[in-house]
């Protein structure tokens, strides 16, 4: 710590001499720059699937490669800002975000892609299965207005309620509702956990609910929900976020790391780059965390002992 302070002080002087400080002045060196085992800063975005990825990576970094790991609870877009300042080394489940990629990878050149996670991400609208059984035509978006009354709540201003998640999640729902002329109001529950709770209640107490959700998601293995068919996705139909009137695309979820972290080419970077698994793997860990009362660390450890064949391939050669 003292070294870092001294280095930073020296940096101030140098900068004063040659004029001006850049925005990342004084921030720590990239975690694992010189082969010395440093600290890897992982952004933790607020959904349990992401947490599963991060937990397994953190577990392997710590136990197999000897790094320290610092978790940062950050929303998606805020994490990207962390690449600029050095607060974040890696995002380990990125949902598209082409606009951010353009800004931070192409323009600012502070981040680089580190390959897919192997997970396919699919966002959509869902209702509990019993509703689809009762009203077979409800799963077509064209009929949603007919049933809007069912979904009324205290928050939906006399319209039907479409329950969304964290305001920071990737969503076109407000635009979709407007552009498809649906008599619905988007209400943000604030978190994935809140949607899950509402969805479980909807099944347990037979309460109507229309909600935003996504795969990979452990809940789909436990309870039955029906997907609403939206107008089909065509390439480019979601370019203008205000004019979207089509379904969500299936996304290849990927990893993004800071440029400095990638340039270090440390074993930590290589592990994150090599990391690749399936939706089932992720759902298993999410289930451990959510329903079996395990901490993320414990869940990752359990998975790692059970699935050595999967992660063996991620460990960089020669380490």
């Amino acid at each position: 710590m003292k070294l870092r302070t001294a280095a930073a002080a020296a940096l101030v002087m140098t900068l004063a001499a040659c004029g001006g400080a850049t925005s990342d002045a004084g921030e720590g060196k990239p975690a694992a720059s010189t082969g010395a085992k440093g600290t890897v800063k992982l952004a933790i975005n607020p959904w349990v699937g992401y947490e599963a990825n991060a937990a397994v990576i953190a577990h392997l970094l710590k136990s197999k490669l000897g790094y320290q790991v610092e978790n940062k609870e950050l929303k998606e877009e805020v994490s990207w800002q962390g690449f600029e300042t050095g607060e974040v080394d890696a995002i380990v489940e990125n949902w598209g975000h082409d606009d951010l990629k353009k800004t931070y990878i192409e323009q600012k050149k502070v981040a680089v892609e580190a390959g897919p996670t192997g997970n396919k991400g699919r966002i959509g609208w869902f209702i509990p299965q019993w509703m689809a059984d009762e009203h077979p035509d409800i799963t077509d978006w064209k009929n949603l207005n007919k049933y809007a009354d069912l979904f009324k709540t205290s928050e939906s201003k006399g319209k039907g309620q479409l329950l969304d998640g964290d305001p920071s999640f990737v969503t076109n729902d407000k635009a979709l509702v407007a552009n498809l002329k649906l008599n619905y109001n988007v209400v943000f529950s604030g978190s994935e956990a809140a949607i899950i709770k509402a969805a479980q209640q909807a099944n347990a107490q037979k309460k109507p609910l229309l909600f935003y959700f996504y795969e990979p998601q452990w809940l789909f293995a436990k309870e039955k929900f029906a997907r609403i068919t939206l107008p089909p996705y065509t390439k480019g139909c979601d370019t203008d976020p205000k004019k979207v009137a089509c379904d969500y695309a299936e996304l290849t979820l990927d990893k993004v790391v800071s440029k400095k972290f990638a340039d270090s080419n440390s074993t930590a970077y290589q592990l994150i780059k090599n990391f690749q698994w399936t939706n089932d793997d992720q759902n298993l860990i999410s289930d451990y965390i959510t329903n079996q009362g395990m901490t993320a660390e414990k869940a990752a450890e359990k998975w790692a002992t059970e699935h050595e064949a999967t992660w063996k391939a991620w460990i960089p050669a020669g380490s």
Binding site: M1, K2, R4, T5, G20, A21, T22, S23, A25, G26
Partner: peptide, 28 residues
């Protein structure tokens, strides 16, 4: 302009840097 405008490289960024040093010192 965060890394080019004088307002930032001589003002705001130094402020940030100064606070960063202080936090590092206290943390140390």
């Amino acid at each position: 302009n965060r890394d080019t405008s004088p307002l930032f490289i001589y003002g705001v960024n130094y402020l940030r840097l100064g606070v960063r040093l202080l936090v590092d010192a206290v943390q140390g």
